[in-house]
Design a protein around this nucleic acid. Structure first.
Length: 414
RNA sequence: GGACAGUUGGGUGAGUUGGCUGAAACCACAUCCCUGCUAAGGAUGCGUACUCGUAAGGGUACCGAGGGUUCGAAUCCCUCACUGUCCGCCA
């Protein structure tokens, strides 16, 4: 959630920031008004309650002194009636505010480039030269068929479209990649964590998936539970509603989880192959830091993900997302895009974001800085998306006959 | 899933004949004093959130969550969640 006090005090500045992210200033104006309304409603309510509390105390004294209380009771009864009304309007103001506030995306950093969609993203650097093929490189689904690695039709049979089955060497490579990623991350100082793959609504709200993106989630029928769309949710919310100490920070976590997404808005996109599935494996990095630490940790996370790709010998590039392409919770995001020779383009394989205190405010994650409680910064990033890495290996390591070499670093894992 | 018990501040743990308890005591923690040096003693402070105020200092809310009774609830009633124990089931 954005800082509403900041919005109130620096409206023009705040609204300029959010325009970058495609929020119109009318919505912001409304948010500001709702906030002011709530504050006023609460102020009057609290004043009345203070009076009532005072009278109730008096009441006790009267009783003890055996004084007559009928007059006092009449007064306090009248006050009570008044409070019921005030309470109702305060509650309405609260709900109206939350409706808008929870749907408001994070402020982008000032350094974020202007732009409306991925066309306007900025390439920062390329790592590794794509290899040149003496034959026409195939796409991964063709290779999958040749090698018997992926069964799309049986995945569909078991569940529905956008589910797939990995077999034999592909299944083993999937597992090898997970282990490789976790090992590298651990060497970089991330603690490995194994978390529930199902989280409750409060946690999903903490990281920003709810209430706005409910349609993208698989919900458990009849329960307040959802399949996680990313390990970012459980890893970040590990500290939901907690107050940490300075010496605990930064907290660096990594974990493997499957991720479940409805892909509601992506009908028709990447329907072929396993670039976009309802279920995919991912190893995630999450960092909980002080505001001062987050910049450095962010760079470290990007370098780490890039380093993993380099170790795998996969050509990739680093792209800075423009304001319009930035996710809901992110203040800044760098994507790593891996080269897919079969598709002849770079495709996202990791996305690393600093949400600053946006998630921390929602999830109430703070740390004690001296006497004050300060919101932490939370960061997250993939290292890496496993299925897409498998795809990248297939396409980059293919031979003319369709066979696939195993990257050197993975050999000891297979 | 069934039965019973429980859920209080960072921790342990009082308080359950409703008001003087936002909450004793102890521990932990912080600062200071004394002492002096692998110790001990003393003083003070020490929950969270919102809100008013330059500040000092006020106000409101929170004793698992939500609702109810009452002038007033941690204390009474209802619903739910969670934890523990026993039973059932089970990887």
């Amino acid at each position: 959630m954005i800082d509403l006090k900041y919005l109130q005090k620096n409206f023009d500045e705040a609204s300029a920031k959010l325009v970058k992210k495609g929020v119109d200033s009318e919505t912001l104006e409304r948010l500001k008004e709702l906030f002011a309304t709530l504050k006023e409603a609460n102020a009057t309510l609290e004043e009345s309650k203070a009076e009532q509390n005072k009278m109730s105390k008096l009441f006790g004294e009267y009783m003890r002194e055996k004084k007559d209380v009928t007059e006092l009771k009449a007064k306090v009864d009248a006050k009570k009636e008044e409070i019921v009304g005030l309470q109702e309007s305060a509650r309405e103001a609260q709900q109206a505010l939350e409706l808008v506030a929870l749907a408001m995306p994070n402020f982008p950093d000032d350094s974020v480039p202007e732009g409306v969609d991925e066309e306007d993203n900025v390439e920062l650097k390329k790592v590794l030269e794509p290899r040149s093929f003496e034959f026409e490189p195939k796409e991964h689904w063709a290779l999958a068929e040749l090698n018997g690695w992926i069964e799309f039709d049986r995945g569909v049979k078991l569940a529905k479209s956008r589910f797939a089955v990995l077999r034999g060497e592909a299944a083993r490579m999937e597992r090898a990649l997970i282990n490789f990623f976790l090992d590298v991350n651990r060497e970089k100082g991330f603690e490995e964590v194994c978390v529930p793959f199902i989280n409750n609504a409060t946690m999903l709200q903490g990281t920003g998936q709810l209430p706005k993106f409910e349609d993208d989630l698989f919900k458990i029928d009849g329960e307040d539970l959802y399949l996680i769309p990313t390990a970012e949710v459980p890893l970040t919310n590990l500290y939901n509603d907690e107050i940490l100490t300075t010496k605990e920070l930064p907290i660096l976590l990594t974990g493997y989880t499957p991720c479940f997404r409805k892909e509601a808005g992506s009908a028709g996109r990447d329907t072929r192959g396993m670039i976009r599935q309802h279920q995919f494996d991912k190893v995630e990095m999450v960092a909980i830091t002080t505001p001062e630490q987050s910049e450095e940790i962010f760079k470290m996370m990007v370098d780490n993900a890039s380093d993993i790709l380099t170790q795998l010998g996969l050509p990739h590039r680093v792209v800075e997302l423009c304001g319009g392409d930035l996710g809901f919770s992110a203040a800044t995001t760098l994507d790593l895009e891996v080269w897919l020779p079969g598709q002849n383009k770079y495709r996202e394989i990791s996305s690393i974001s600093n949400t600053r205190d946006f998630q921390a405010r929602r999830a109430k994650i703070r740390y004690k800085d001296g006497k004050k409680n300060v919101l932490v910064n939370t960061l997250n990033g993939s290292a890496l998306a496993v299925g897409r890495t498998l795809v990248a290996i297939m396409e980059n390591y293919q031979n003319e006959d369709g066979s696939i070499e195993i990257p050197e670093v993975l050999k000891k894992y297979m």
